[in-house]
Amino acid sequence: MARKASEGAKNSELAEKLNKLFDLMRVGSKPPLSNAAAAEAITRETGISISPAYLWQLRSGIKTNPTVAHLRAIAQFFGVTPSYLVDPGIHPEIDAQLNLLQALRDSGVRDLALRASGLTPQAIQSLATMVDHVRELEQLPPVSPTAEEP
């Protein structure tokens, strides 16, 4: 019985990850891909046949035994590592990149980032402090700074 519960948790986690990918990985302000459009594109781009119904079952948490081949094809299509879908748990680096993508979809955030481009590190730190204060005033959770890339 405990095995069934852990399988259900794993599948709902997979459904969550898939739905996040569908929501975030889209062009501009266009709506997310439908299961049919995604299935066609995944099959065309990866050579792995996948049906819209299968995608729906995975995204709904109904499918309890997804194939690794299908998960790899989906990951390849969305540009994430297969481990993001195959391995249980949170992947901080990938989640940080997906959250950044989500933030950059907001035109106001993009505009602010463009305006900050070229400022000194001290000026950017001052802006970050101001934004943190405004987030606090608006009762939003704090945002962890991202690690600098080498």
Rank of each mutant, 00 (worst) to 15 (best):
S6C: 01
L137Q: 12
L24D: 01
S144K: 13
S29M: 03
L33A: 15
A36P: 02
F77D: 08
A116V: 09
E7I: 00
T46I: 09
I42T: 05
A73G: 05
T67P: 05
I90Y: 13
R3A: 13
S49T: 12
D23L: 14
R135S: 08
L14P: 01
S29I: 06
L58Y: 12
S60Y: 10
A15H: 10
E136T: 10
K63Q: 01
D23R: 11
G28I: 07
R110Q: 11
L55K: 06
M1R: 02
S12C: 00
S34M: 13
Y54A: 00
E149I: 10
T46H: 02
S29Y: 14
R72H: 04
W56H: 11
L114N: 03
D106I: 03
F22A: 04
R3M: 07
R105E: 09
R110T: 05
K63R: 07
T64N: 00
A113D: 05
F77E: 02
T120N: 07
K4R: 04
I124G: 01
S83K: 07
S49G: 12
T43D: 08
E149Q: 10
L24A: 09
P52L: 05
P142W: 10
A113C: 12
Q76W: 02
F78G: 02
L104C: 02
D95W: 06
L33M: 15
V86G: 00
K63F: 01
T64F: 00
I62F: 02
E138I: 05
V68E: 08
S49A: 07
T81M: 11
N19I: 13
P142L: 05
